[in-house]
Computed example of a mutant assay.
Amino acid sequence: MSYAYEGLATVTVLALYLGQPPTDLTMLELNVRVHNAGSGRFRIEFDRYLHGPKEANALRVILPGGLLLQGPIADGRNEPAGGWLLIEAEQYDLALEQPASLNGWRWE
């Protein structure tokens, strides 16, 4: 199976529950392999234990260039030598460039 992406990424493990404040743990420069696992599903593989909040249920992966994959964890395995997580996610392109027109709005 070929990878959609292989390399370093910023990975955030989240616990999101109704009525509770979200908790998260972010790892910078984690080596990952991303597979497209079907419509709106991505398999994220990693080479070490992935730390996160107790009862984590969502994952956010930011790839170099600004591509964001985020969604609930559907399945996976997390072991000391690594593992994988399957997330149901949408792809978002986080443009790092400002649009040509901001309709008069600017940061002050």
Rank of each mutant, 00 (worst) to 15 (best):
M1S: 08
M1Y: 05
Y3H: 09
Y3K: 10
Y3S: 13
A4E: 05
A4Y: 00
Y5F: 15
L8S: 14
L8E: 07
L8W: 09
A9D: 01
T10E: 08
T10P: 00
T12A: 11
T12K: 15
T12S: 13
V13E: 02
L14H: 15
L14S: 13
L16I: 14
Y17L: 04
L18C: 08
L18F: 14
G19K: 13
Q20E: 12
P21F: 08
P21E: 09
P22H: 15
T23Q: 14
D24C: 15
D24V: 09
L25R: 14
T26Y: 09
T26H: 07
T26I: 06
T26Q: 11
T26W: 06
L28R: 13
L28N: 14
L30T: 03
N31S: 11
V32Q: 00
R33T: 03
R33K: 14
V34Q: 04
V34N: 07
V34I: 15
H35W: 01
A37Q: 06
A37W: 00
G38N: 04
G38A: 04
G38V: 01
G40F: 02
R41M: 06
R41D: 00
R41A: 04
F42Q: 00
R43H: 01
I44D: 00
I44L: 04
E45M: 02
F46C: 02
Y49R: 13
Y49K: 10
L50D: 05
H51D: 09
G52K: 11
G52F: 02
P53K: 15
P53V: 06
K54S: 10
K54Y: 06
K54V: 11
E55I: 05
E55Y: 13
A58N: 07
A58D: 06
A58Q: 10
R60A: 12
R60W: 00
V61Y: 00
V61C: 10
V61T: 02
V61D: 02
I62L: 14
P64K: 02
G65D: 03
G65R: 03
G65F: 10
G66L: 11
G66F: 10
G66I: 02
G66R: 11
L67I: 15
L68K: 14
L69K: 10
G71C: 03
G71N: 07
P72T: 12
P72E: 15
I73R: 03
I73W: 02
A74R: 14
E79S: 10
G83T: 01
G83H: 01
W84A: 06
W84M: 04
L85V: 08
I87P: 08
E88G: 15
E88P: 05
A89S: 08
Q91S: 05
Y92C: 09
D93H: 09
D93E: 12
L94N: 13
L94I: 14
L96N: 13
E97Q: 11
E97P: 01
Q98K: 13
Q98F: 12
S101P: 05
S101D: 14
L102R: 12
L102V: 14
L102N: 12
N103V: 07
N103K: 06
G104T: 05
G104Q: 08
W105D: 07
W105C: 10
R106P: 03
